[in-house]
Design a protein around this nucleic acid. Sequence first.
RNA 1: CGGGGUGUAGCUCAGCCUGGUAGAGCGCUUCGUUCGGGACGAAGAGGCCGCAGGUUCAAAUCCUGUCACCCCGACCA
Length: 511
Amino acid sequence: MAKNIKTRAEDYSQWYLDVIKAGQLADYSPVRGCMVIRPDGFAVWEAIQRELDRRFKETGHVNAYFPLLIPQSFLTKEAQHVEGFAMECAIVTHSKLEKGPDGKLAPAGELEEPLIIRPTSETVIGHMYAQWVQSYRDLPVLINQWCNVMRWEMRTRLFLRTAEFLWQEGHTAHETEQEAQQETLAMLEVYREFAEDVLAIPVIKGRKTEAEKFPGAVTTYAIEGLMQDGKALQCGTSHNLGQNFAKAFEIKFLGRDQKQQHAWTTSWGVSTRLIGALIMAHSDDDGLVLPPRVAPVVTAIIPIFKTDDEQKKVSEACLKLAAQLCGEAEVQAAQKRQGGRELLNVFFDKQTGQTVLIDRRDMRPGDKQYYWEQRGVPFRIELGPRDVDAGNFVLKRRLDRGKEVVQFGTASQQWLRAKLDETQKAMYQKALDYRTQNTRDAGSYEEMKQMLAQGGFVRCFFKQDKSTEARIKEETKATVRCIPLDTDVERGKCIVTGAPDGQRVLFAVAY
RNA sequence: CGGGGUGUAGCUCAGCCUGGUAGAGCGCUUCGUUCGGGACGAAGAGGCCGCAGGUUCAAAUCCUGUCACCCCGACCA
């Protein structure tokens, strides 16, 4: 057992922090609520960006960049929007520091209008779209941006909720309501497919209740995942903003009917919170477990030797193995690039930048095992003198901690790719099984309370109502996570109020 | 912003009650023995004891103020 990581059973939130620390994903910053994303954590974010960005482009979107600072007046233009974000805005009020009479630096040069550090960019983007859109011929506008945003949170947790976070926000404007609605659902589907295929996290697509929707949206959709402690986590959102922002920012165009009309807009986003989801969905008491598609290192090769002769023999075998997995040319390029460095990163996939790594550091093999295990590397290969003599190597799987002896000749790029795909599927299946086992149907409020205490999703009929939802949250800490899209038409008796037209919803305690 | 707590080495903490000028474990550096799942020995480096005042011959220790962080609540991707 890992000695630097608390077990999930002992203390789940400490486990989560320990996994992040052991995997060197992130660190606390000098500013409360902010975090430093370390190279190993950022590599995961880059994988997320890479996969999502490709999907955005494939669905016709382009990237752009809008500024960090937003005039305070913009925020107040959409009534719901201000109300939702006012409490967590960071505000820039001064433009410089000056030495005061006491010799200390103090803010000076007060701004005429305070600037808000973007908590999200609907307002600036709405302002710009108003200028860019004149005619139905200018629509649709399909723009995404990768950036940071700031929400001054009271309580923060690495990745899950930080004051500053990285995300992606797509903002589109359309000619018709139907088109905007289609876009909203299409992007939700992109998120679902991405979460399940790339992150191996099964998610439920659903609609948010009035109480839970985005400030300023007509309808908010989300994908909801279930974490290993039985709590739900919203993993991505897609909003149909109707004409709310178009009206607030005057996004108007001359339609095919020769009449001025307001555009229909959407916005959708996922954030670095996904890294938190990844950790809580898959990792175990030994540390991080990364799905192969986002693992920066797919396999770590650990040479084992005692004598100089053995080292020579084993080192050669390691290089040969790397060549079989990645190609001779890549091994040579890596050696040229990294020279005598102790960690030799050989590109396994140049498109994604994922590598096979030879760990030549002067450490005991056991230490190396733990090192790569805690970083979530899908496979480790042990290669020692006995293996070289026997013509094989030992493959260790991160997911189930199993190991197998593999004939040296078997190893190839296709072989490893197949192994990685197999792991990717197994991780998804494992998470799906967990969710299936932790999704229960409640026929009464009493039953729901008992089920919620066990964790997981509770499915039931519920008649939407803000005050009832607040009461349930008070009593059970749970909220309506979503109204799943695939059962959106079903109606039944509300298990709390008895109203006949309850919708089928999913309750859970959430992050 | 309300309730509770803590600030001493990179990390976890002891020392404070009963003032006498700094400790342990882990980590780090060097050397040697080790090396198929977290080794051992030896030698080292590292701290104006959160900050500012005060009491005192003398303050990590007592007093006052202040700042920061952590935990629990209301808000949230």
